[in-house]
Design a protein around this nucleic acid. Structure first.
Lengths: 190, 190
DNA sequence: ATACATACTTACTAATCAGTAAGTATTTCC
DNA sequence: GGAAATACTTACTGATTAGTAAGTATGTAT
């Protein structure tokens, strides 16, 4: 068949991400993906032999995307406030879709994952925290952002607020997430 | 057999909690529980007919415990700082055991849960946030704690730091969690 | 044109999952 | 001592799980 050469692989990655963010890693099956894409489960296994290969692929995709974003953020022309809001808006988008942060979702099942996936997850988190840390440090230096903690600790405080904020919002409602974001910006932006 | 009348039910609740915090709700089975307790899986079904009944039981147990803690916290003799540290130490204990917050873990699988469990989860979160909010408001009034946000928003910021902090710590190491806690206390305690 | 790689489908399998019906031992109440 | 409730075990079931081996259609390079 193969109407479009390799779109299927991209679609599997997209759906897998959606399922993890919506239902959790151990709550969806290859059958869920194959039904949605109108293919057979063996087709999913063709692209990703095991479920952990799919998760590894999804995390790898995230790593590439965040490397790209980090590159974009290297541009000093973009204001630190704008970069900060760009990060926040990613979580707001998740919230609007009733999804949660991929890392936060996978974290719940962390101890069921093979070492190769654990290593990728560690890399992804390091990448994200490092990027945010840089934005914060730069923003403070330029007088656009203010905080008393170290940039490293502040990046963790900020990202835990956002990650658990969307988790909270899914249960208690979006206005809680909005309140968190407003408070973060009020404290952080000069 | 029934050597000890109803210890089994308590043990199932205890193990279920441990599994959720360690591996995730959709990652453990009744077989895991029955093997560990050296009983048959039907015995687990006897106490909790369905897996969602077990989860409901676990959440109910948490609700009762937090109601007790809230009662203890009603004592004005205990300092607000001590109450705050008591809350933080609960999360530190999870961190030490390589576990994560029950709510945070279940949240990943939230959309796979029946409405009855969702409602219980909402109640539990309301209870915890309400309790923390009270501690913060009281602490500020007594001049023991300081923050510029509303007590409500600050309670959410604090709890999201702690909940996602233990999630983060399991992946990147405990020192990140320690840094978060130290920062929280430094900011909050007068 | 043909060989080969890609991208699947067909048709399974073995294991595990939650869940149940029926039987049994033990304790408790009267 | 008999009835009933409690706390299980035995012995299953049907559905779903991840995963595979073998076959097929389609495009590509020579």
């Amino acid at each position: 068949m193969a109407v479009r050469p390799t779109d299927t692989k991209e679609e599997i990655l997209r759906l897998g991400t959606e399922f993890i963010q919506t239902y959790g890693y151990n709550a969806f099956s290859y059958a869920d993906i194959s039904k949605e894409l109108h293919i057979k489960n063996a087709a999913v296994h063709y692209h990703f032999p095991g479920k952990e290969d799919l998760l590894a692929g999804i995390i790898d995709q995230y790593i590439l995307r965040y490397r790209e974003l980090a590159k974009t953020f290297a541009n000093p022309g973009i204001s630190s406030k704008h970069k900060l809001q760009s990060i926040i808006s990613r979580y707001s988008a998740l919230c609007d879709q009733g999804r949660i942060c991929l890392i936060g979702s996978v974290c719940a099942d962390y101890n069921t994952l093979p070492d190769s996936v654990k290593a990728r997850l560690t890399e992804l988190i390091g990448l994200v925290l490092g990027m945010v840390e840089k934005v914060l440090r730069e923003g403070k230096k330029k007088g656009e952002l203010q905080f008393t903690e170290t940039a490293r600790v502040k990046s963790m405080l900020l990202m835990t607020n956002l990650a658990a904020g969307v988790q909270l919002a899914r249960i208690t409602g979006q206005k809680d997430y909005t309140a968190i974001c407003n408070s973060i910006l009020k404290q952080l932006v000069v």
